[in-house]
């Protein structure tokens, strides 16, 4: 293994290094999104916990009957979207902290894509439950 030979590469002034590329003029939206989504999630997740008691161990017919009701479908879709929006913001912050260099951008894109697809799958599943409910009527 090559021994690292210390050498002076950077002669830019400290102030220049710290100023860097300047400010990105963003951050408040992300920060607010995290807070707003967490506030919305408080009542939504409480509602979901109650519903979990109803759905645990239930038959598929019961699930369709429950999911087909517009109010349940609406709240469930709202929960799914808010959850994965909140998760995306949270995971992004983790990547910001721990991932540097070349892996940074791909990881950010992966998180956006992953949470989006999961959320979409959830929404489409709920819609399918609603359709299944209507077809049993």
């Amino acid at each position: 293994m090559n021994a690292y030979e210390p050498h002076v590469d950077v002669m830019r002034s400290h102030l220049g290094r710290v100023r860097g590329l300047g400010v990105g003029h963003s951050g408040a939206e992300h920060w607010w999104g995290e807070r707003a989504s967490s506030v919305v999630l408080l009542p939504l997740s409480t509602w979901f916990v109650v519903q979990m008691f109803r759905l645990g161990g239930a038959s598929r017919a019961d699930v369709i009957k429950w999911g087909g009701k517009p109010i349940n479908a609406t709240l469930l879709i709202a929960l799914i979207i808010t959850t994965f929006y909140h998760a995306r913001l949270g995971l992004q912050v983790i990547v910001d902290d721990y991932v540097h260099g070349h892996a940074y951008l791909p990881m950010r894109l992966l998180i956006k894509l992953g949470t989006f697809l999961l959320g979409l799958l959830g929404v489409i599943s709920v819609v399918k439950l609603v359709i299944a409910h209507d077809s049993t009527k």
Partner: peptide, 14 residues
């Protein structure tokens, strides 16, 4: 405030 509006400069505070 403009000078602090940056994902890292300010908002890296967790």
């Amino acid at each position: 405030l403009d000078g602090l509006e940056d994902t890292f400069k300010l908002y890296a505070c967790r």
